[in-house]
């Protein structure tokens, strides 16, 4: 494994998925690709956890799924945020910001 790739901290996968979907409906593969690209390949999505996570979020009612045609015209399952999902995303990303800010503050102590 590349040295500059990071494993995802516990519990952040849901947040990343919500973020990726906040930009528009996507299928599973595209979600993983997008996260990898945006993080400049630093974040490696453990593919084994992606689909269980998607189904879990669907069950919670934060995202919903629909079958549609992908860009290469194949049938694919597209996920999009529900209204609760949007609210949840806003809350969780705010919480994340507060957390990281606080952690940086502590780490930046001189």
């Amino acid at each position: 494994m590349d040295a500059d790739r990071l494993d995802l901290p516990q519990g952040t996968l849901d947040l990343l998925i919500l973020k990726a979907l906040s930009l528009g409906p996507q299928h599973g593969w595209a979600i993983s690709e997008r996260i990898q690209q945006v993080s400049r390949a630093t974040l490696q999505i453990p593919q084994g956890s992606l689909y269980p996570a998607l189904h879990r979020l669907e069950r919670r009612g934060w995202i919903r799924a629909e079958w549609g045609a992908s860009d290469n015209n194949r049938k694919a399952k597209f996920y999009e945020l529900t209204r609760t999902g949007r609210k949840q995303f806003a809350e969780e990303s705010a919480a994340w910001d507060r957390l990281t800010a606080a952690v940086s503050l502590v780490l930046g102590m001189s």
């Binding site: 299928h27 599973g28 593969w29 993983s32 593919q47 689909y51 079958w67 992908s70 194949r74 049938k75 694919a76 399952k77």
Partner: peptide
Amino acid sequence: ELDSELRFHLDRE
């Protein structure tokens, strides 16, 4: 559905 979803992912990869 789960089967085709995962297959789709693999094919794209």
